[in-house]
């Protein structure tokens, strides 16, 4: 058995056949798999690609007919997003054009679109709010979820089925309706438009997912591991830390990513429960809609910039996400 360790599943299925034939067939199958996956991935990435390119388009190019794949890139969208601008009158515009060389490159981009920069937009502060709120609530949700999931998975919790359903039901009521009472409650408690209020709210919403998911993962870890550790003189807590945690890393990574994505992108609550201090970008990016037509480039730039932190976290956790649950001992 140990000789087979590390060989792929495809090979081990047909391991009765001669070795060179197997590896060749497996190679062909693997190539077909890889090809199919690349095709699907490419199709799924077209809209993302479109968003990324739109972010660098000028206003006219963004809605060109037919759609433009090749275009002259501009940072107009990003300038629109990050800076507060005012539209220039004809005379002032000509005056600015005359002393174009004195202007910084950012102001030149704004000038090309017929506007002048008058300050930093609120977007930067909103991005910071997102980091605080999404980060805080993700850590809390995963930590609390992990502890309860372990307890539900391993101990005889009285009424566990009902409790789990109660936890799940937190996610069932549409946000639109819950917001009205939460709004009233938060205003009374002074939690309206605060970081802590949003962190608590997102934590509660994510707990349903985190408890259920992590319970699913911990259920898959054989109990014999911990029982062996307990026999060896570990306490429950030590067994949890040294046996369960390392084996649940995949689940923890997956849960972290899901919770982070939800809290990072949440729209309805943020729209209704924050106004300025704790507002995050999702409700404000579509607000770029107004003021003379849709600013697609600014919306795309905002979405792209907002996407990057989540992509970085997911890539950082990739090793755990894709490692799979490895039950070394049970494979012997």
């Amino acid at each position: 058995m140990t000789a087979l360790e590390g060989t792929s599943r495809q090979r081990s299925i047909t391991y009765a056949a001669p070795v060179h034939k197997v590896s060749r067939r497996a190679r062909v199958i693997l190539a077909i798999r890889a090809f199919l996956t690349v095709i699907v991935a490419l199709i799924m990435l077209i809209p993302v690609f479109w968003m990324a390119t739109t972010a660098f388009k000028s206003r006219a190019d963004a809605v060109a007919v037919p759609p433009k794949v090749f275009f002259k890139p501009t940072l107009e969208g990003f300038v629109n997003l990050l800076a507060e601008r005012s539209v220039l009158a004809q005379a002032r515009r000509q005056e600015m054009q005359a002393r174009r060389d004195e202007l910084s490159w950012i102001q030149r981009i704004a000038l090309d679109a017929g506007t002048e920069i008058i300050g930093v937009s609120q977007y930067v502060g909103r991005l910071r709010n997102s980091v605080i709120i999404a980060g805080g609530s993700t850590v809390l949700a995963v930590l609390l979820g992990l502890l309860s999931a372990y307890a539900f998975s391993r101990f005889n919790v009285p009424g566990s089925g009902d409790l789990l359903f109660f936890i799940l039901s937190q996610r069932m009521l549409p946000a639109v309706v819950v917001t009205i009472p939460i709004f009233l409650m938060y205003r009374r408690l002074g939690l309206h438009d605060t970081h802590i209020g949003m962190i608590l709210l997102y934590t509660v919403f994510n707990l349903s997912l985190s408890v259920w998911l992590l319970k699913g993962f911990i259920d898959e870890i054989p109990r014999q591991y911990e029982e062996a550790a307990l026999v060896d003189g570990y306490t429950r807590l030590q067994a949890f830390r040294k046996v369960v945690l390392p084996n649940a890393l995949t689940g923890i990574a997956a849960t972290t990513v899901f919770c982070l994505i939800f809290a990072w992108n949440e729209y309805a609550f943020a729209l209704m429960l924050t106004s300025d201090r704790a507002r995050t970008p999702p409700p404000s990016i579509p607000a770029k809609l107004g003021r003379g037509g849709i600013e697609w480039a600014a919306i795309a730039a905002g979405s792209l910039g907002f996407l990057i932190p989540v992509v970085i976290v997911t890539f950082a956790l990739r090793r755990y996400l894709l490692r799979g649950v490895t039950f070394g001992a049970i494979r012997q």
Binding site: A41, L45, V48, P281, I299, F315, R318, L321, L322
Partner: peptide, 15 residues
Amino acid sequence: LTTLILVPMMLSPAV
């Protein structure tokens, strides 16, 4: 590739 396929899920639904 797997991580790339996850990208659509990471976008903000409103956007």
